[in-house]
Amino acid sequence: MSRLQVVSGKGGTGKTTVAAALALALATEGKRTLLVEVEGRQGIAQLFETEALPYEERKIAVAPGGGEVYALAIDAERALLDYLQMFYKLGGAGRALKKLGAIDFATTIAPGVRDVLLTGKACEAVRRRERDGRPVYDHVVMDAPPTGRITRFLNVNDEVAGLARIGPIHNQAQAVMGVLKSPETAVHLVTLLEEMPVQETADGVAELRAAGLPVGRVVVNMVRPQVLDEAAVRAASGDHREAIARALVSAGVPGGGALVEPLLDEAAEHARRVELERAQRAVLDGVGLPVYELPYLGEGADIAGLYRLARELRRQGVGAA
């Protein structure tokens, strides 16, 4: 598995949850992973039900088999100040810059700079080594911006190249692109079996490929159980109403007859959903990427749910050599 796993997806598809489950799955059996978020939403803290994450790598979960998941909320402003400190020994001057709005300016307005700082920090964690030469983190999982912005976000080189043609930001962009475009990186797109997210996924994959970025997998999230199929519903809505009513009564359902219609309505709705999902799967087939499928967690993703998703990912091959 690639060292840097980038997880994107349309808003509402659960990409933060998938990223967290992936970090847990990859940490299983004594590995160490780092889960990073880049959008200042504190989604990881909410998910793991902890305090807001500071700008510092912190252990947030233990994986089965003694693995560890660390988390980091990357803050562009802090990353830039660190960076200036590292290269220019700015000290107090950094604070002065901040007061004048220069740091804000560089991290917010100056296009691409923010993205270079965010991806740069993640790449730094990928490359970081212990004294003995082993990587500090076996894997880094990034909860990345949504599908609509992911290519632009990762393709910092192009963004910055036109603006900063020389200087450390330029060099940084070059180094970052070296990691992002290599097999060390895989970009996954999370989707639901609904029209808009699937379309956006197909578009996103095309964009990533066009930019030469390594596309990993499609993760179909919140897959619901299929209880009845269309054929069953067709049969049901035929002339069997009376027979069904009798069956309901014999099964001890009070007022069975009156329930036939509402139950058949529910079945028809179910069948339509199944049919729509089938159509969306066909679109995903056309994308030609390997797929992970994750079940729908009723109450939303809590910690138990995360571990369940992580086991599911392991079962589907995550972490296998």
């Binding site: 299929q226 089938r278 087939d285 990427l289 809590d302 571990y307 079962r315 589907q316």
Partner: peptide, 30 residues
């Protein structure tokens, strides 16, 4: 939030293995 479902043994068909979307076919649970 029942998290005890770890029935690898009941893995049906190809679901235990990462599949390519090309083989996932349709929704077919039935």
């Amino acid at each position: 939030s029942d998290s005890e479902n770890d029935h690898t043994s009941s893995a049906t068909g190809a679901s235990g293995v990462p599949r390519t979307s090309g083989t996932s076919g349709a929704s077919g649970a039935l």
